[in-house]
């Protein structure tokens, strides 16, 4: 197996806003090793959301190469992208994005449903919730959980399909610093135990400092990479 889970070469992304072309990414080349913890930082408008969307296969780059876990992502159609996201990427969002009417267990089960697994889904989802320390909350709905607990459910959901990478977009942004740190500890622990690559998009220096490497973006380019 290749050592690098993510390899990009000269990624660009151009949005057309009427007549104006906005260059969100201007030739981003990077490599992320399997099991690595990487923070992506940058001011708003620096292109870090675009980079996250591209690396998370939510969007295709305008040009450039992207290989995720040995699969060439460019040229895939919408449904193939959906399949890659399902199998290889676990998302953790700033605002949790749980389905409000579903229980914690069904929320975690959701990616399994789309991956066509028919048996043992509940069991897998239960295990994932256990690994984030919520085995006693599986039948609760999001409204009955605290912010930290909701984010744990979201992390369990990201983990449940054994993805190659976890994409965390400001995972602590909606939490107070104490709970935020707990979530960070949980993410780092999971990374240590299972070796899942963790990519954190953040503008919080304290959070970024806990990564092994920080990639700073500025105007759609990588300004510098520093070991944290």
């Amino acid at each position: 197996m290749d050592d690098n889970v993510i390899v990009t070469h000269d990624l660009t992304k151009v949005y057309k806003m009427g007549l104006v072309e906005v260059h969100a990414l201007c030739g981003v080349s990077l490599e992320i090793k399997r099991g690595e913890v990487v923070a992506i930082m940058g001011a708003s408008g620096s292109g870090k959301s675009t980079l996250m969307n591209t690396l998370g296969c939510l969007d295709q780059p305008t040009s450039g190469e992207y290989i995720l876990d040995g699969e060439i992502v460019a040229d895939l159609d919408d449904d193939q992208l959906a399949d890659i996201r399902n199998r290889k990427v676990g998302f953790v969002f700033q605002s949790f994005n749980l389905l409000p009417r579903s229980t914690a267990l069904s929320n975690v089960e959701l990616p399994l449903r789309y991956s066509g697994i028919t048996s043992g889904r509940k069991e897998k989802a239960r295990l994932a919730l256990e690994s984030v320390g919520l085995s006693d909350r599986i039948d609760h709905r999001p409204a009955e959980l605290s912010g930290g607990q909701q984010q744990r459910v979201a992390i369990a959901r990201a983990l449940v399909n054994d993805p190659a990478i976890i994409m965390a977009d400001e995972p602590t942004g909606n939490l107070d610093s104490k709970v935020g740190q707990e979530i960070m500890d949980l993410l780092l622990n999971l990374n240590k135990e299972s070796g899942t690559t963790l990519i954190i998009i953040t503008h919080d220096r304290k959070i970024a400092a806990q990564a092994q490497r920080i990639i700073r973006l500025h105007d759609g380019r990588i300004r510098k990479e520093v070991a944290a």
Binding site: G56, L58, D78, D79, A82, D83, R85, N86, R87, F91, N97, L99, L110, P111, Y114, S115, R157, N161
Partner: peptide, 16 residues
């Protein structure tokens, strides 16, 4: 819309 976006992020295809 957000729910649909989330479902797609989690791997829902158009058909789903």
């Amino acid at each position: 819309t957000r729910e649909i976006g989330l479902r797609k992020a989690l791997g829902a295809r158009k058909r789903d």
